[in-house]
Amino acid sequence: TFYNFIMGFQNDNTPFGILAEHVSEDKAFPRLEERHQVIRAYVMSNYTDHQLIETTNRAISLYMANL
């Protein structure tokens, strides 16, 4: 899942690491979701930090390219 992918960046001092920290603390994050459209919609609806949203979009693109 995307959640498992992004958790691989925990403790990294990178934008993906920052995203992983936010996702791990977000109890409502769709952890079992595999459809990138649902993940993107969730982030757009629940996150207000523009940098975090952009990082999510980049992470989703990388995740999709590696499926």
Rank of each mutant, 00 (worst) to 15 (best):
T1N: 09
T1G: 09
T1I: 05
F2V: 03
F2C: 04
Y3D: 00
Y3M: 01
Y3V: 02
N4T: 11
N4G: 10
N4R: 07
F5C: 02
F5Q: 00
F5G: 00
F5I: 03
I6H: 00
I6E: 00
I6M: 07
I6P: 00
M7G: 01
M7K: 05
M7H: 02
M7L: 10
M7A: 04
M7S: 04
G8Q: 15
G8A: 11
G8I: 07
G8M: 13
G8Y: 07
F9S: 01
F9K: 01
F9T: 00
F9A: 01
F9L: 04
F9D: 00
F9Q: 01
F9E: 00
F9R: 01
F9Y: 09
Q10G: 06
Q10V: 14
Q10R: 15
Q10S: 10
N11W: 09
N11R: 08
N11I: 05
D12G: 07
D12S: 14
D12E: 12
D12Q: 14
D12R: 14
D12M: 12
D12Y: 10
D12C: 14
N13H: 08
N13Q: 10
N13D: 12
T14E: 03
T14N: 07
T14W: 03
T14M: 03
T14P: 02
P15Y: 08
P15K: 06
P15M: 11
P15R: 08
F16A: 02
F16R: 01
F16K: 01
G17M: 05
G17W: 05
G17D: 02
G17H: 04
G17C: 04
G17K: 06
I18L: 12
I18K: 14
I18T: 10
L19H: 01
L19S: 01
L19Y: 02
A20K: 06
A20P: 01
E21S: 13
E21Y: 13
E21I: 14
E21Q: 15
E21F: 13
H22T: 10
H22K: 14
H22V: 14
H22D: 03
H22N: 05
H22E: 04
H22W: 13
V23C: 04
V23R: 02
V23H: 04
V23I: 15
V23W: 03
V23A: 04
S24W: 08
S24L: 12
S24I: 09
S24V: 07
S24Y: 13
S24Q: 12
E25I: 11
E25K: 15
E25M: 14
E25T: 14
E25A: 15
E25S: 13
D26V: 14
D26R: 07
D26N: 03
D26G: 03
K27C: 09
K27M: 10
K27S: 11
A28Q: 12
A28S: 14
A28P: 04
A28Y: 14
A28I: 05
A28C: 13
A28V: 06
A28T: 14
F29P: 02
F29T: 13
F29W: 05
F29G: 02
F29N: 03
F29I: 07
P30Y: 15
P30T: 02
R31C: 06
R31N: 04
R31H: 07
R31M: 06
R31P: 02
R31D: 02
L32P: 04
L32K: 11
L32T: 12
E33M: 05
E33D: 05
E33P: 03
E33V: 05
E34G: 13
E34N: 14
E34T: 15
E34R: 14
R35D: 15
R35C: 13
R35K: 10
R35S: 13
R35F: 06
H36Q: 08
H36W: 15
H36C: 15
Q37R: 08
Q37W: 15
Q37K: 07
Q37S: 12
Q37G: 09
Q37A: 11
Q37N: 12
V38Y: 09
V38A: 11
V38Q: 08
V38T: 07
I39D: 01
I39H: 01
I39G: 00
R40I: 15
R40D: 03
R40E: 08
R40K: 10
A41W: 10
A41G: 06
A41E: 14
A41R: 10
A41N: 12
A41F: 09
Y42T: 03
Y42G: 00
Y42N: 02
V43S: 02
V43P: 00
V43Y: 03
V43H: 02
V43C: 06
V43K: 00
M44S: 09
M44V: 10
S45K: 12
S45H: 09
S45Y: 07
S45M: 12
S45W: 06
N46A: 08
N46H: 12
N46V: 09
N46E: 06
N46I: 05
N46R: 06
N46L: 06
N46S: 09
Y47R: 01
Y47D: 01
Y47F: 07
Y47W: 14
Y47A: 01
Y47H: 01
T48I: 09
T48D: 12
T48Q: 12
T48F: 10
T48R: 09
T48K: 12
D49F: 08
D49C: 07
D49V: 05
D49Y: 13
D49L: 05
D49M: 06
H50R: 12
H50T: 13
H50Q: 13
H50F: 11
Q51Y: 11
Q51A: 12
Q51I: 13
Q51R: 10
Q51P: 04
Q51C: 12
L52N: 02
L52V: 05
L52S: 02
I53M: 07
I53D: 02
I53Q: 08
I53S: 03
E54H: 09
E54I: 09
E54L: 10
E54R: 09
E54M: 10
T55M: 08
T55C: 05
T55P: 02
T55S: 07
T56F: 15
T56L: 14
T56N: 03
N57Y: 12
N57M: 15
N57I: 14
N57Q: 11
N57E: 15
R58I: 10
R58V: 08
R58L: 13
R58P: 02
R58Q: 10
A59S: 04
A59W: 05
A59G: 03
I60P: 00
I60A: 02
I60S: 00
I60M: 07
I60F: 05
I60T: 01
I60N: 00
S61Q: 14
S61T: 12
S61G: 10
S61W: 12
L62A: 09
L62D: 05
L62E: 08
L62M: 12
L62I: 10
L62R: 06
Y63V: 02
Y63I: 06
Y63L: 07
Y63W: 15
M64P: 01
M64Y: 09
M64D: 04
M64E: 09
M64H: 13
M64F: 08
M64V: 13
A65G: 09
A65P: 05
A65L: 13
A65R: 10
A65V: 10
A65N: 10
N66A: 15
N66I: 15
N66C: 13
N66P: 06
N66H: 15
L67D: 08
L67S: 11
L67F: 10
L67Q: 13
L67V: 11
L67R: 12
L67P: 08
L67I: 11
